[in-house]
Design a protein around this nucleic acid. Structure first.
Lengths: 186, 186
DNA sequence: ATCGGATTTCAGTAATTTCTGAAATCTTCG
DNA sequence: CGAAGATTTCAGAAATTACTGAAATCCGAT
């Protein structure tokens, strides 16, 4: 596939962004290419277009499939696999968030729970330190709970909320008098 | 400084997490250590505790200072620099988000604008492709706008919103009949 | 069953990133 | 000013990560 300069710029930048967020450069570039491509393309075409080894494309596609960001699409009259990227930006975002939560946040929560228990029991971890761990655990649990509720809302509602921006603030109930501990205070 | 097993586990895990999000492992470990430490500590103490070179600690601290996640704190009667981490979890989160937006999202928006213009003008980029770029640009601009509004809200309001979870959905105005294009539809 | 193309795997190599130690610089105090 | 300690810089070494090409496997057609 022939890349126009605009496409090339996009693909290179996306590769760079991926690298900064812990995603392999080739994986990100391939994703960018499939995202831009007007129609499904073959692994070999990807390799040629981006000048990377066919085997690298194979492994990278495997990863993108695992993330659910790319799918195989059969093309009639051609027995080679063709690939295309998920197109809906909202869907792309939620897939990535969902996956990273599963792979990174949830395990972190487990570890924090274990650390909190261990620190409480060992009789040698400073009280301050214990509080930090417990506070962070509570904070992440609150965020996690929020995410769990919000992700279930229908897409139009989410988009509505997004478009409301700061105006949602009107609907937050006024806090009653007195000092209350809330998420993130620890 | 002597690490208890719970602290060590925390520090190692945090280093790992950092690595997955594009942050150098040592930087993340140092941040974890300072976050847990009951009082400000010196660079040398960090190097000893984590068994990394003094010079590496120096560079890593520089980076953490640039992120605004750590600060120098003078300790009377000691002319060595002491360091301590920001403690408020909410503040930590917003600093990180703010900084990554500035370093990664904003430049991405610029590049997308440039790509969109170039693609519109070159007469060789497929219409489909042009729409993808424009759609993504619009999507990211919407998110960016939302963030700009929300980050300005007072912390208690933000925490209030967080605790409301999915219940905010009640306040989204009902969409009028007819097909409307919204963020992320492209 | 077997042939031919498509695809995947993986061991070794290449490239990149991270880390170190020596030297340079800065800072404070006498 | 000069010494001693603290800190930073940076070139090269070490470690990690990514990429490649050859070989193995898969898969459909005959």
């Amino acid at each position: 596939m022939r890349l126009t300069p605009a496409m090339e710029r996009y693909v290179l930048h996306w590769g760079e962004m991926g690298a900064r967020w812990g995603v392999n450069r080739s994986v990100a570039q391939i994703h960018a290419l499939l995202y831009l491509a007007p129609k499904p393309i073959t692994a070999e075409e990807i390799a040629d277009t981006l000048s990377i080894a066919r085997s690298n494309v194979s492994m990278s596609l495997k990863e993108l499939l695992a993330w659910g960001l790319v799918q195989r699409t059969p093309v009639k009259g051609d027995r080679r696999d063709h690939f295309e990227a998920l197109r809906d930006n909202w869907e792309i975002l939620t897939r990535i968030v969902e996956e990273r939560k599963k792979r990174e946040i949830d395990p972190t929560l487990s570890i924090l729970r274990a650390c909190a228990m261990e620190a409480a029991a060992d009789g040698q971890t400073a009280a301050e330190t214990r509080q930090r761990i417990e506070g962070l655990l509570e904070f992440l649990e609150t965020l996690s709970l929020w995410y769990g509720q919000v992700k279930g809302l229908p897409k139009p509602v989410l988009i509505g909320l997004l478009k409301m921006g700061g105006r949602v603030a009107r609907f937050v109930p006024k806090k009653r008098a007195g000092k209350a501990r809330g998420a993130g205070d620890g």
